[in-house]
Simulated assay, not measured.
Amino acid sequence: MKDKCFYNADGDFLIVPQQGVLDITTEFGKMRVEPNEICVIQQGMRFSVSVSGSTRGYILEVFAAHFQLPYLGPIGANGLANPRDFLCPVAWYEDKDVKGYQVVSKFQGHLFQAEQNHSPFDVVGWHGSYVPYKYNLALFMVVNAVQFDHCDPSIFTVLTCPSNRPGTAIADFVIFPPRWSVQENTFRPPYYHRNCMSEFMGLIFGNYEAKKEGFQPGGATLHSVMTPHGPDTQCFEEATNATLCPTRVADGTQAFMFESSLSLAVTKWGEETCQKLDKNYYKCWQGLKKHFNPKWQPDVL
């Protein structure tokens, strides 16, 4: 973006680069955001992005509220994404006159453009706490079950944008980082479920544990509100026959989820134009077999 910047008057952007490095210039300074890092640029902040080479990723936009750390409850003062690991931009400014500098804004879902005769990044100093920031996902402190059962994925929440309805969010940003799995007498992968949230899954790198085939970095899955889903056939068979010893999970992988209590719609571009929609996606569950035996009893009561 040469002599051009952008700002969002509608809401906040959470940006997840998947390929390529983002060099972001803001009114507050500069940020360099690499894959396995995220950044949040809040409502009204002017910024520009420079890239070199092939670059892609994911963006989550929220309205009416801002992202914040989740309430930790009985976890206590420390855990998950710690405040100390969030970084604000490195101080920088430019005092530059530019003829026809373009300022693009997003307002009520439409794009507008204006011109000015100087760089908007000429802010020499500021104070306050309303700033863009970035976070390295490798610094997330994982919490997990250590005896039995499978925890709700909310334990992997990095940031949340809460709604007015307790127990739900406008949006959660959740990751599935490398970790130990040690539960006994438990089906360790994510359980089969349906819930009141829309789940948009993305993959930054590696292979997602519940769908190792067909889900590629840069791709995505969407499970809408109350749509049943869970691990594919291969994952189920491997997990139900595996010896339950302490095991590393998701090494070399970083999957994430945008979760929302609101319904998500797929655009015409995503459904048709891009020609990347997997119309056979449902077949990953077709091989699941019925294992119920009403006469089964445990070896020890």
Rank of each mutant, 00 (worst) to 15 (best):
V174K: 05
L72G: 07
Y93A: 01
G206Q: 00
N207K: 10
L137F: 07
S181Y: 14
S181D: 13
K134R: 06
L159F: 01
R56K: 15
D23C: 09
V90F: 10
K99N: 15
G270T: 01
L139F: 09
P132A: 08
N117H: 10
G29E: 00
T243G: 12
A138V: 06
S263I: 15
W269C: 10
F215Y: 10
M141A: 10
F292G: 09
R188K: 11
F63N: 12
K276M: 13
Y101M: 00
V103Y: 02
F258N: 05
A77Y: 09
L87N: 11
D278Y: 06
C196S: 13
L69P: 07
G214M: 09
H223E: 12
V40Q: 07
K99L: 14
Q147A: 04
Q183E: 09
M31G: 05
E27I: 05
P162V: 00
Y282M: 14
L288S: 05
P294T: 09
N280A: 12
L301T: 14
G57H: 07
S105W: 03
T233R: 01
R194V: 08
L222S: 06
P70I: 05
F63R: 08
K99G: 15
A65S: 10
A242G: 12
Q102W: 09
E184P: 09
C235E: 04
F176D: 03
L111N: 14
N144A: 03
M226N: 08
A239L: 01
F107L: 14
Y281F: 04
D12A: 04
P35D: 02
C39I: 04
D10G: 06
N185P: 11
C39V: 05
A81H: 11
D23M: 12
D152K: 02
F28N: 00
A114P: 10
D278I: 02
S224T: 15
D149W: 06
F173Q: 09
Q19H: 01
C245G: 14
P35T: 02
K212F: 10
H66L: 04
F107T: 08
V143F: 12
K289L: 13
V266Q: 06
N117C: 10
P228S: 07
G76C: 10
H66M: 06
N36C: 04
M31S: 04
I155T: 04
C161L: 01
M201H: 15
F121K: 03
C88K: 15
E259H: 09
M31P: 05
R248V: 09
F200H: 14
K134C: 01
P246G: 03
E27V: 03
D149C: 01
A91W: 11
Y93R: 08
M31D: 03
P231D: 01
H229R: 02
R179I: 03
G57I: 05
F258T: 05
G287Q: 07
G20K: 05
F47Q: 06
Y101Q: 03
D152F: 00
L264C: 12
Q286P: 11
R179L: 08
T55L: 14
P189E: 02
V123F: 11
F176M: 00
Q42P: 15
M31H: 08
N241L: 04
R194K: 15
L264P: 14
C5L: 09
Y71D: 15
V143L: 11
V98Y: 10
